[in-house]
Amino acid sequence: MYKVKIDGIETEVNPGTTILSVANQEFVEIPTLCYNENVEPRGACRMCTVEVEVWGRKRLVTACNYPIQADIVIDTQSERVKKLRRLILEVLLARTPDSPRIKELAEKYGVKQPRFNLEKTHDNCIVCGLCVQACKDIVGVSAIGLSERGIFRKPITPYEESSHTCIGCGSCVYICPTDAISMVDKDGKRYFERWKTEFKLVGCESCGTHFATDVQIEYFKKVMGKDDPSLHFCPNCLVLKETKK
């Protein structure tokens, strides 16, 4: 066990515990954008940077993936941290001036008008990579990836053509922190503009509500190795059926 002091609160943790999980335990708020507990932290957005002191040395680290390996003092509100947060939000706000999530964070941390030209692409993507991670590590299909480098880096389908491996599950949409991926269900079809894909929706055998794409159901049949009731009914009806039993 290591001694931890986070914003003055003292506690003890097991080796390897991340700063973010200690903070969550102790109700210390650290802003995050690219962190999602279902995938491995990439530390890409740097929003969760905090100042730590270990073995008498002070440094800035990202809370999401810093494993505690010694007694540590953590300051989530130091001047350096606060200034860095503002600067990160300033460049992000210039990149995605329309994103409600970025606007909200910017306002919360005191960033008003960025000093830079605002991008006019109306794309809210901040290239955090969560969609790519979700597709690969949660869904297991790797229909998208990050391409190019530097300022041109972006999530795309292979060759930016309609993806053959996408199953239309929408996990990328749910995990995106800035709502940058649109998914539209209309007239029995599902469209992803960013991935240039289109799917047929399947209705619940009980209530008729569209609840998945046909490709998605085929994919799950293959993964489960069998047909399963969960592939025929929407989540609501499934719960009802379970309780009736």
């Binding site: 990439r42 530390g43 890409a44 957005c45 740097r46 929003m47 600067l87 990160i88 460049v91 992000l92 210039a94 990149r95 830079f116 901040i126 290239v127 990579g129 990050l146 190019e148 480098r149 530097g150 300022i151 041109f152 880096r153």
Partner: peptide
């Protein structure tokens, strides 16, 4: 700016600006 991998916000966006 051209060689930044583009993974993290400060380097990608900061160098551009």
């Amino acid at each position: 700016q051209e060689e930044s991998c583009g993974k993290c916000v400060p380097c990608r966006e900061g160098l551009k600006r």
